[in-house]
Design a binder for these strands. Sequence first.
RNA 1: CGGGGUGUAGCGCAGUCAGGUCAGCGCGCGUGCUUUGGGAGCACGAGGUCGGCGGUUCGAAUCCGCCCACCCCGACCA
Length: 569
Amino acid sequence: MNFSRVTVPTLKEKPADAEIASHELLIRAGMMRNVAAGIYTFLPLGASALAKVENIVREEMNRAGACEIVLPNLHPAEAWRESGRWFQYGQEMMRLTDRQGRAFCLGPTAEELVTLAVAKSAPSYRDLPVNLYQIQTKYRDEIRPRFGLLRCREFRMKDAYSFHASYEDLDATYKRMYEAYVAMAKRCSLDVRVVEAPTGLIGGDVSHEFMVLSGVGEDIVVHCLNCDYGANAELEKHQPGRRFGTDSSYPLEEVHTPGLVSVTEVASFLDSSANNVIKCVLYVAGDELIAAFVPGYRELSEVKLARALGTDNFHPMREDERELFPQVTVGFVGPVGLSGVRALFDEELKGKKGLICGANRLDYHYRGVEEGRDFKAEPLVDIALATDGDRCVVCGSELIVTRGIEIGHIFKLGEKYSKPLNALFTDADGSLKPIVMGTYGIGTSRMLATIVEQHHDEKGIKWPKAIAPVDVEVITLNPDREEQLIAGREIYENMIKAGFSVLLDERELSAGVKFNDADLIGIPVQVIIGRKTSEQRTIDLKVRYTGERFEFPADGIEEKIIKVFNDIC
RNA sequence: CGGGGUGUAGCGCAGUCAGGUCAGCGCGCGUGCUUUGGGAGCACGAGGUCGGCGGUUCGAAUCCGCCCACCCCGACCA
C-alpha cells in the first residue's frame, strides 16, 4: 500500500461532534467518515482494522464448532409477526415497504430467520446440536445514536444461534461460546469482565454480558474486587448495607419541612444525612399507584422493580397524573400511615430505626421512624442499586460500581422462539419437541471502537498488533533523495514477500507531517528512512505502542523489523 | 418524543443581537521556488445557491414563518 494511493484523509483538528477518543481518532486518522446520524463509512484503513477484528471472531467461532452462514438483511415482516416481535420491537426496528406494499424490516438480529431455516429441515435429535453464525451489518433505529461507533443505527455484529435437543446440551454450547468470547476479547487486547445480565427484548432465562470497563461505557457494572462475581447494575445482588438508619430508638415526631422535597434538602434541614432518609419513588401501573421505598442514599433499579412486580408495564408518575391519585402528597410520601397505594420496600429497610420519611401531609416529615414499630416493610424486596462499598453476596468482599462498554451478550433462550415459530425436532422416542436454543451476539464495529478507547494516547491510536490495519509503516523522509526512495521501496517489497502488510509513506511532505500522521494512524512499527540512511546507512525503527526507538544498519534491516515486530506483545 | 443548541469553502470557526464593500479567518487543497529527523517559508491561485422553501424590505447570511439535517441532556435501548 502506497500512502498516496490509499484514501487516508487525516485531520489535524478534532471534529466538532466527536466526544470520545475512539470517535475522534477514527475520524482524524482517516479510518472512517460520518454519513448520517449513527451511520459511518469505513475507509481503507478502518475497513482493514474491522476485518482483522471480524477474522478473529470468525476463527474463534469456527474453533468452537460453529458454522458461518449469510442471512439476508431484508427480513419479511411475516417471520417477525410469528414470533410476536414485529409488535414488541417497536420503533427501534427499521421498517420499510416494497412496491407491492409488503412489509419488511432491516434485520436488527436474526432469531426468526435462522430458526425458520433450521426448522424447515425438520431435524431429528441426531442432527442436533448445530451452531450457526454470521457476521453482518445490523440495523437498529436507536433513539439517540452517539459516541461514534459505540452506538450506531447501522453497525457490524456477529450473531450466532445454537439449536439443541436438550437443555444440558445448550449448557455445553453456552459454555463454549462463553469461552470463545473471552478468547476473542483477549486476542483483540480487550480486558473483558463477564457479568450477569438482564435479558431484555431477546428474552430467555440466563444471560451474560461481556463488558470492557471504561469511563465512556453506557452500562453500569457492579463487580467484586475479590471474586469473579459481576453483574449489570440493573440486576446485581448485594448484601443489604449497614449504613442505613441508627441503632437506638427515638420517639416518632412530626416536623415542619416547608417546601423540602428532595432527600438531600430534608436531610440537611434536619441536620441528618441521606443515610437516614427513606426515599419514595412513585410509579403508575395501569390504574394502580406504586410506592417504592429505598434508602435515601441509593437509587432504585427499574429492572429489579419490574421483576418484583412481575411486569414491566409501568412508568414513573408524571406531573399530569398527580390528580388521579389524591391519596398521596407528592414530595411528602412516607410509609407511616400510607394507604391506597401498592407499597414495596427495599430489603435494607428491615428493622431500621431513627429514620426520616414523608408524613403524607404537605410540608411535613416524620423523624425517629422505626420499621416494625411505625410501619411494616412488607413486601420486602431487592429493588435498590448497589453503591461502592456494598458487600458481595458470594464472598462478602467489597463491590465496586463502574461503567462498562458491552461488547458481547450471550443468552440461553430455551424455547422462547422455537415454540411460537413451531420449530420442532423429532426426539429419540419419536415425539416432536420444540428445539432448545441459545443466541450469542458480539458487536464487531463496537469492538473496534472499544479497542481504540483502550489503546491510544494524545498523539493518536496505538493499534494492538492483531488489529492494526497494516503491520509496518515505512516512511521515507526525503523521497526526493533517490537512495532513500529506493531503500524504502526495497524494504516495502521485501516485507511484503516476508508476509507482512506494509504502508509506504513516500509523500513529498515535511518530516513532521509524516511522523504525526504515522503516530495518529498507529501502525505498530514505523521504519524511518532519512538523513541517517543517506549519510551513515542506518535506519530507525520506532515501536508505536511503547515509543521505543532502535537504530540498525540498513543492510538486513528486514530481519530487524521482523524481530521488533514479533517482540511486541 | 420533551428540553437545550448548531447549520457560513473539504475541516475548525468569525460575522447574525443594532439589514447596506460581510463573502471572511485559520487549517487543508493547486502551481512555482526555497525547505525536509517531529504538523516549514514566500508568492500566486482555486473553492461557498451563507441548510431548504416562503415572506418582510429599495436591499436579507443577518428580521419573520414553515421545513430539513446534525449535536448535547433526558426518557428509552443489545
